[in-house]
Design a binder for these strands. Sequence first.
RNA 1: GCGGAAGUAGCUCAGUUGGUAGAGCAUUAGCCUUCCAAGCUAAUGGUCGCGGGUUCGAGUCUCGUCUUCCGCUCCA
Length: 513
Amino acid sequence: MTQEELFKKLIAHSKEYGFIFPSSEIYDGLSAVYDYGQLGCELKNNIKKYWWDSMIKLHGNIVGIDAAIFMHPKTWEASGHLGAFNDPLIDNKDSKKRYRADVLIEEWIEKQKDKIKKEVDKAVKRFGDSFDEAQFVATNARVVELQTKIKETEDEMARTLGGNDLVGVKALIEKLEIVCPISGTRNWTDVRQFNLMFETKVGAAADGANTIYLRPETAQGIFVNFLNVQKSARMKIPFGIAQIGKAFRNEIVARQFIFRMREFEQMEMQFFVAPGTEMQWYEHWKAFRMRWHQALGFGAQNYRFHDHIKLAHYANAATDIEFDFPFGFKEVEGIHSRTNYDLSRHAEFSGKKITYFDTDKNESYVPYVVETSIGVDRMVLQVLSAAYKEELLENGETRTVLSIPAPLAPVKVAVLPLIKKDGLPELAQTIINSLKFDHNVQFDEKDSIGKRYRRQDAIGTPLCVTVDHQSLEDGTVTIRHRDTMAQERVAIDQLPALVNCIVSLNSLFAKLV
RNA sequence: GCGGAAGUAGCUCAGUUGGUAGAGCAUUAGCCUUCCAAGCUAAUGGUCGCGGGUUCGAGUCUCGUCUUCCGCUCCA
């Protein structure tokens, strides 16, 4: 089976068993948007808990927040997200060249102004010799006509661009008969805005509603709260602020299942450090984050660092942790040394002082930031791709099994009466009652026992507890392990401790400290 | 954005020169009782992606459109 076939099967499996559905599927779906089903949601929650607790519980100097998705629009001016990405673009279909629509119109206006200048120059030159009233009137009329056209165009440009009326912008370009400087044709595409931020309006339209944005990253919610958290929690540098939340990017090309979605979830931690110490913390978090991934046991060979050579404007070091997905090594997480860029910019744009007084150094400074930022959805995909297997059994049959690490598995235990009479279902229910406060437990009495095992394998349940007639006599059950299919007989009253030992996140945390 | 392919039941698919939409699995209800899936009986489930057109009649022919997948391009 090729990697491509495996990926297709994984997508089908995810849908069939209730992990991930295409969004709004009854309306033919919405491109690059997906919903998490009953099992996907559990898996995702478990991943988030693994991450959150590994940050908050294991580190005395990291606290978590949950900032709003809506933020003051100035946030995005300060962060640099508004600006270069905000231009209306238009392509010429013949030359295949892309232009800024507003620049094309402005160039046209400049040309008209040149025409006026030429007319006037010509008139001045001519009337210096002999004044002709008829020619003067004609020249004047041409100039006034051009000026009127310029004024109309400027008004129309301001109206369409200001109101984000892209159809209007294109209509204007067509009306002005602007041609491509290279191909010389007027074969234009529609005007498109390649802004990665989604816009919406706050307030009633009649009152002059303001444009606000769905955040394209969660980080800014932490930066703008830096002083709130530092002061209210009495945090001393170095310290971190963690957050899990949705972010939104209007990607032009969004593909590969849940790898690149327009709405996605990030887990990120901004670690604030003294200037000059950022590189050592950068190395520290690189190592810690890699340990976090590898603790899941998918194999070290499936991970690698990809150090950035070309850095973003705010960073002085950056690396990605890449995982070997069915479609190749791709970024799951980024670790960036963001310098003091963000806090400085917010200080500048807000006019507030954002500094930290370091009592050890006895000086005040703008902290440097080391960021770890991981995509929850990519993490879900990592777990599913690593876990999905089709095994050939000794009897020649194949079984589909999701070897999800037990602490992340959506369902921890299935309790199965061997047959559905003689009081076996009732005993199974008693066992479920002893486990359900702590774990997600399923009951299943339909079909043969082998079939029920396979059903649980397909959704990644690590443990099956089977109740048989012997259970009624001596109070023992068999416990069957997903990956090895091995069975052992244990006392019912030992089950809670045994299950807890296998499915607890603690086994993962132990590898991190 | 360009090119290619696909879309029929929850899933995998069949559907003849255009003539009343099928199978297996799944699901549900019984029966049976067996520690590694497909025992018996019955039931449920489809405006054939959507919208026009041709035709007495369209899953089938035709045009458009949407969605998904693959490749290229673009973006980071």
